[in-house]
């Protein structure tokens, strides 16, 4: 099987771009090259750890090349990326000693998500939103985060294949809009195979269609009256703020900008991922 052996994490928010810069070769190694990374957020952090964890579980050697930028390298350390990768990967680069200050009202370091801690994480993030955002936007953020966490622990098989979450609230000093970013990545079944478990979705043949369908209310991989999570997330976001959801699974990515209306774009991408990645940003309107 041809596996990704080198993922080039360069520039700002490289994993929110449609295409991931990756090289393929038949190899037992995965290199996450973050040397040219200039700005990272919860999506990059959780994806790095999920990719590494998944590759390690498959018996592959994992290497993380730390960012050349000291601030970015320090942020990766502060957000637990290095601690989580140290037992399973070779960390290539300079590490600094850090004195941790409790910032739990502003950030959630990368944390392994499991059915056992899902609700305490949701509770922490609910409080984070309450302390940093207006009430309506905080409620919108919580509803979105809650649905993504529930999806990951229910369908993403968090705990068995590895799922990770991270979040960061920001004050809006530079953007003028306070907000909250949340990411959850799992290496579970993925959206397409999940939806196809329900015979009514057997016609869905590709990842792009699966992502489009997953955003529609009532489309579910179960045979119960479910499948409203992502649609509810978008409704809640619109009620309480403005937001953006980026969902990646298999060989497709969907981006939904939520303002007065939803602007949905879905496309196929070159580099497939295992499982599903979701990134949500909710900001005060």
């Amino acid at each position: 099987m041809l596996d990704v052996v080198l993922i080039d994490l360069s520039g700002r928010h490289p994993l929110l771009r449609s295409e991931i810069s990756a090289s393929f070769i038949d190899s037992d190694q995965l290199v996450l090259d973050a040397r040219r990374l200039r700005f990272a957020g919860p999506q990059e952090l959780t994806a790095i750890v999920t990719l590494a964890s998944s590759a390690s579980t498959d018996g592959r050697d994992v290497v993380l090349r730390m960012p050349d930028d000291e601030d970015v390298a320090s942020y990766l350390q502060r957000m637990n990326v290095v601690d989580l990768l140290a037992p399973i990967a070779t960390i290539d680069g300079t590490l600094t000693s850090q004195r941790r200050v409790d910032c739990s009202t502003k950030l959630l370091e990368v944390t392994a998500l499991s059915p056992g801690n899902a609700d305490s994480i949701a509770e922490s993030l609910g409080r984070m939103g309450e302390s940093q955002l207006s009430n309506r936007t905080a409620m919108a953020a919580f509803h979105g985060i809650a649905e993504l966490i529930d999806n990951a622990v229910t369908h993403g098989r968090a705990g068995s294949s590895g799922a990770f979450v991270a979040a960061q609230a920001y004050s809006g000093l530079t953007s003028k809009r306070p907000g909250l970013e949340f990411a959850v990545c799992d290496a579970g079944i993925g959206v397409l195979p999940h939806l196809r478990q329900n015979p009514t979705n057997a016609y869905i043949a590709d990842d792009e269609t699966a992502l489009r369908r997953a955003l529609v209310a009532g489309v579910t991989g179960t045979q119960q009256m479910r499948g409203y999570g992502l649609s509810d997330l978008l409704d809640a976001t619109r009620r309480g703020g403005v937001g953006r959801l980026v969902l990646r699974s298999g060989s497709a990515i969907a981006s939904v900008v939520v303002r007065q209306k939803r602007i949905i774009t879905c496309r196929n991408v070159t580099t497939p991922i295992r499982g599903a990645w979701a990134w949500l940003r909710v900001r005060v309107p």
């Binding site: 609700d119 305490s120 949701a122 509770e123 993030l125 919580f142 985060i145 809650a146 529930d150 229910t154």
Partner: peptide, 12 residues
Amino acid sequence: RHGTFLATRALA
């Protein structure tokens, strides 16, 4: 008793 922010179906 289950918390102040209630999220998952498992908890429900």
